[in-house]
Amino acid sequence: MVVITGAGTGIGAATAARFATDGYTVVLVGRTEATLRRTAQEGPDGADMHPWVADVRDPGAVTAAVNGVAERFGRLDVLVNNAGTVTAGTVDQIDLAGYRAMMSTNVDGAFYASRAALPHLRAVRGCIVNIGSVAGLRGEWNQAAYNMTKAALVGLTNSMALDHGREIRVNAVHPGVTLSRRVLREALAEGTTLHERFADRVPMGRPGEPVEVAAVVAFLAGPDAAYLNGVHIPVDGGLTASDGQTNLYRIDG
């Protein structure tokens, strides 16, 4: 059985649907019951999906949720640390409330959930998959604090893989720009200036889809990844294969 934080929308919802399709019992953790219920209702036919309201920013709440899940279902095989938020801004411009929200959700939430899940995962030699970002591997303009939080997940993944590798596996998936929200779909629609700028940098010429990220998460949690530990997989259409320079030899406009 799998617990997915931030499972109400976007990559979290797509990941929940993928695990349900693969036959897992899926517990959807998040702060808003309505979105969690919608994810469960829109899941695949016959899905065994259960909303569970908890705020990952609260160590007591997330510990109670993880322990409650393990008690109710008898085990915990996979934890997906997906809950996250983003506020744009440079170090001197970012709103401090937004900064604290990102730190408490993106970093503290993953730490608290991992800490709570460890004893249950040890019992079954389970695994953790962290949802990072290419922003934590390379950095993005105007996202100083967000980049920092996602880089922290890289460090957490590496440290837990070392410290607990004889008991559980800990890996990370790092999406590039993914069409997880309507506003992104509109901003990156074909024909827009932003789409053209994006396509110039991404070898595959398009943003990712949540289901494409979910597929890699499911792979890392599954038996085919049994010897993968401390691995970081960018799901970015080849973006991080580049040194950042535009194609100097492109002459088709």
Score class of each variant (00 low, 15 high):
190 E>D: 15
181 R>D: 09
182 R>N: 13
171 N>E: 07
163 D>I: 02
195 H>W: 14
191 G>W: 09
168 I>V: 13
162 L>N: 09
195 H>I: 08
167 E>G: 04
192 T>N: 13
183 V>L: 11
195 H>P: 08
188 L>G: 05
177 V>G: 00
161 A>R: 03
167 E>I: 02
191 G>I: 10
190 E>F: 06
178 T>G: 03
195 H>N: 14
170 V>R: 00
189 A>W: 08
178 T>V: 08
159 S>V: 09
162 L>Y: 10
186 E>H: 08
181 R>G: 05
190 E>L: 09
167 E>W: 04
186 E>Q: 14
161 A>M: 08
168 I>C: 07
157 T>W: 03
194 L>S: 11
161 A>S: 14
183 V>A: 15
169 R>T: 04
178 T>P: 01
186 E>Y: 07
188 L>S: 06
170 V>N: 00
187 A>Q: 14
193 T>N: 11
185 R>M: 05
168 I>T: 05
157 T>K: 03
170 V>Y: 00
169 R>W: 05
184 L>K: 07
162 L>V: 12
162 L>P: 03
182 R>Q: 15
195 H>Y: 15
173 V>M: 01
170 V>W: 01
176 G>M: 03
157 T>R: 03
156 L>M: 15
193 T>Q: 15
183 V>S: 15
163 D>E: 15
165 G>D: 09
192 T>G: 11
181 R>Q: 13
185 R>N: 05
158 N>Q: 15
181 R>L: 10
173 V>R: 00
160 M>S: 06
181 R>W: 10
180 S>P: 03
194 L>G: 10
168 I>D: 04
177 V>P: 00
182 R>M: 12
178 T>R: 02
162 L>A: 11
166 R>S: 13
193 T>W: 13
184 L>E: 06
182 R>L: 13
168 I>W: 04
171 N>S: 13
177 V>C: 02
171 N>D: 12
179 L>F: 06
165 G>R: 10
193 T>P: 12
160 M>W: 14
158 N>T: 14
168 I>S: 04
157 T>P: 06
172 A>P: 00
177 V>T: 13
174 H>Q: 09
179 L>I: 07
160 M>A: 12
167 E>H: 08
184 L>T: 05
181 R>Y: 10
167 E>D: 15
178 T>D: 03
175 P>G: 02
184 L>S: 06
173 V>H: 00
189 A>L: 10
191 G>F: 08
193 T>I: 12
167 E>N: 04
181 R>V: 11
173 V>F: 01
158 N>C: 09
